[in-house]
């Protein structure tokens, strides 16, 4: 919507709201960071500025990163989320192309799209003990990428056909490279979601395959609440998906609304 002239009072009010919102959103992250660099005694004081109010330390980071279980959980989380994302994107990109390019007589593409939608939203709880992350996130590549394939001009592929390319060659050499940025972004979204997934991780793993979210959930009961360890572990868990999400920003709205709203 076009704004003609924003009065000064309104401007101040808007910036006030923005500051409150940013503070509200960022405070938990900052709180985790603060605790991760405080000495245990300092965590019981209400101090918020390192160096000025307390002397920061990296000892908890060093201690936590040296724990073999933490290393293994990080590794597991990494392997599982990369694997699930890659698998989902590989399967999804073909389905996305198919939905974008072909008509299916008995079930129209709109309905198929809906079916993929319902797969994500309906079933993951009921089947939590059996489903895998790749199945859980496959909706993202299918929906987002089919939208992107649809937006590609068809003439490009038709030109390839004239040059003697097969359907598959046209897909692989012409269309796929053009939507590669989208593929990468979708892969990132899938990876972040698999990383964050907790219910299957908790239900299906016991020892060897434990991932960071499960590791964190178990910690409080064996150790009590030690603010400094909470800080380090929370950041270790949160940072990978949030940093990845920032890289895929442009596509995230589409991803989360299953392609319905352009971000």
């Amino acid at each position: 919507m076009r704004q003609t002239k924003t009065p000064a009072v309104q401007k101040v009010a808007i910036w006030g709201v923005i500051i409150v919102v940013v503070f509200w959103v960022l405070f938990p992250f900052y709180w985790a960071f603060l605790n991760s660099i405080k000495k245990p005694a300092d965590t019981f004081t209400n101090t918020y500025i390192p160096f000025l109010q307390f002397q920061p330390t990296l000892e908890h980071w060093q201690a936590e990163l040296a724990i073999p279980e933490i290393q293994r959980a990080m590794m597991n989380s990494f392997i599982i989320s990369v694997g699930a994302a890659t698998l989902a994107v590989m399967l999804g990109v073909f389905a996305a192309y198919a939905l974008a390019r072909f008509q299916y007589r008995r079930v129209d593409s709109g309905r198929l799209t809906t079916w993929f939608l319902s797969e994500l939203k309906l079933l993951d709880n009921v089947l939590s003990l059996v489903l895998l992350n790749a199945t859980f996130v496959i909706t993202f590549p299918v929906i987002i990428l089919s939208q992107m394939f649809r937006e590609l001009p068809r003439e490009l592929e038709e030109a390839a056909f004239v040059d003697g390319a097969s359907m598959f060659q046209a897909f692989l050499r012409v269309s796929l490279p053009l939507i590669m940025p989208g593929v990468v972004a979708v892969w990132i979204i899938c990876m972040a979601f698999s990383w964050n997934e907790f219910l299957y991780a908790l239900s299906l793993t016991s020892n060897q395959a434990i991932q960071m979210p499960v590791m964190i959930a178990g910690a409080e009961h064996t150790r009590g609440v030690q603010f400094w360890f909470v800080g380090v572990r929370v950041l270790l868990t949160i940072l990978p998906p949030t940093i990845l999400a920032l890289l895929a920003q442009r596509y995230i709205i589409r991803g989360l609304t299953l392609g319905a709203v352009k971000g």
């Binding site: 938990p28 992250f29 972040a192 907790f198 609440v225 909470v230 800080g231 929370v234 949030t242 999400a245």
Partner: peptide, 16 residues
Amino acid sequence: LPLFATPVAIGYLSIT
């Protein structure tokens, strides 16, 4: 950022 912050980790952080 909040959308992609691991919910379990946020729950755990909330204890503090």
